[in-house]
Design a protein around this nucleic acid. Sequence first.
DNA 1: CCCTGATTCGC
DNA 2: GCGAATCAGG
Length: 184
Amino acid sequence: MGWTDERVALLKQLWTEGLSASQIADRLGGVTRNAVIGKVHRLKLESRAKAPATLQTHAAEPQPVRQVEVETVEVMMASRFVASQAASAPRAMPRSMGATALKIDHEEELEVLEEPRRQSGEVVPIARKLTLVQLNERTCKWPVGDPLKPDFHFCGNNSKDASPYCQYHAKMAFQPVSDRRRAR
DNA sequence: CCCTGATTCGC
DNA sequence: GCGAATCAGG
């Protein structure tokens, strides 16, 4: 396909509207984004709309990770909850942990410490409630809670050797496939 | 990894 | 003029 008048007109319009080269290429069809960019340059179009069409924004802008309370709190969630919540989280983490997504706002309100109702007798280890920035080579990176919620944090207990998890969470993380269904 | 535009250069 | 390949950057 060549650059007919219509196609060039459409190109100009879309480019001016702020669509990206690849998006324009998709809409035009029969051309790649490189072709579009090349054409744009040849047409000497450069300036674009200030407010781009941000349709394609990646969902999940990192929700503000809350400040830390390096205090020790006992986790009192029922094991059932922990299991289901935690079992899936580790897989999702790498996404949001991508270096790009680590901006941390400091415009947050104070954390509401829900008071633990211990005694539930669960053997869940005490979490240190660490946020992303607190993690280091030796802290358990087992995520706790909903990453989109303010109370999200990491287990934070010391992990053995190079393990990313503490002893307790390592067991959950590396369960044999055959056992997983049970735990979830 | 995904994406962006910019440039080069053989066609 | 065209656009794939490549580069530089987010």
